[in-house]
Design a protein around this nucleic acid. Sequence first.
RNA 1: GCACAGGUGACCGAGUGGUUAAUGGUAGCAGACUGUAAAUCUGCCGCUCUUCGGAGCUACGGAGGUUCGAAUCCUCCCCUGUGCA
Length: 411
Amino acid sequence: MTLPFTRLAESGPARHARIETAHGPVETPAFMPVGTAGTVKAVPQDVLENLGPEELGTQIILGNTYHLYLRPGHELVRKMGGLHRFMSWNRALLTDSGGFQVFSLSELRKVTEEGVSFRSHLDGTSHLFTPERSMEIQIALGADIVMAFDECTEHPAGRERARASMEMTLRWAKRSKDYFEAHKHEGPWGSGDLEGQNLNRDGDRLSSAQPGAAAVHDSITKPNAPALFGIVQGGMHADLRRESAERTVELDFPGYAIGGLSVGEPREQTMEMIAAVLEVLPKDKPRYVMGVGYPREIVQYAAMGVDMMDCVLPTRAARHGLLFTSEGRINIRNARYAQDQGPADPRCGCRVCQRYTRAYLRHLYVSAEPLAAVLNTIHNLAFYLDTMRAVRHAITLGDLSGVLSGSVSLV
RNA sequence: GCACAGGUGACCGAGUGGUUAAUGGUAGCAGACUGUAAAUCUGCCGCUCUUCGGAGCUACGGAGGUUCGAAUCCUCCCCUGUGCA
């Protein structure tokens, strides 16, 4: 099954397009908030939906195979009707494969050709992830976009190491695809209890009728089979990156991700790798750079022709008091904001900047009030989404110079 | 008034003769964060200089004393808590 990808405008290598998922459209270039454990930390789903105008709020978020498998367990999520229903998120959902945890939980795992044996960070129990297992779990979770199980190559990695890792990721990509194609229709929506509901994708309209949670859940539609994306690796070696891209494309996926970046390398190198891979990846399918980045970075990558990005930065940094603004970044904890009556970002139109002062946000943070995490995260995500909206607008107008220099208002 | 207990850096609280400007917390100040083991982690946190290696000064209720050396031992004084008058 292909994933409809309609290009609406182009400006140089940059594209503005629309992906049609079973759970609604995703306007690209898109930034995807990370919702590892079935929640974008600190932000309720309805707020995510309304981070932008109409349906242009958050259109897609991530979930994580490793975390949801360990807790609450993918079979439980399947029983609950899939991750969409479980978390009451009726828009697009992408699940990461657990490949990144191969990298980030390096002390708790062992990689073999078969897969990765993990020790759970929660209780120390042993588990084995294979490409097949990752697919099985992701299919059970019911995401719209499923990621191949890859090995996120550590940095630095010499040529031989990077090649070996890349080759294994390619073999795993083939295994991922084989299993996925054979089982992709076994999603949580398979049971009949979701039939007959009509397709109100919009949680807002539902809420006007004051439905109970069950009614909201029942509105979550039965999706088509998900789409599986392949992942390019190759370390920081441009020729390996190109080869990885070529051979991943040969396997034929409806979209392609570039993984293994922002793992400690300098930014110029990140750009170099992205540029090398984008030359090879087909232009008529979405291209997704995983795990990036700062606002300036995602604008640059989008300008290079990247369609999708995700990053924990806006959410995690928010919980640590770092706010992204049109003037750069501020640490709201700093004493100089103690009596600052201005909004976090004077050029931001988000609900947080419309209502609260820096002085108040600082007070909340310093007092360790939970609302600090909520408001800071809402602002950062709104800023990221605004940034991407401005990029899309600039592509439509055919001039990205403004957003690239940061001189264009992002509101 | 008597008897115990106790007075340590912004706060709480270790330390009971020497590597002690003084363990730990907290508060404070700043930095980091890139497919989330992260509401986390790191640094600074007496004063004054500094070629950033360090140098000098002042400090453990107050004043004296013992000692080569005291936050630590002795004497007196002040203050706090509890109990008894």
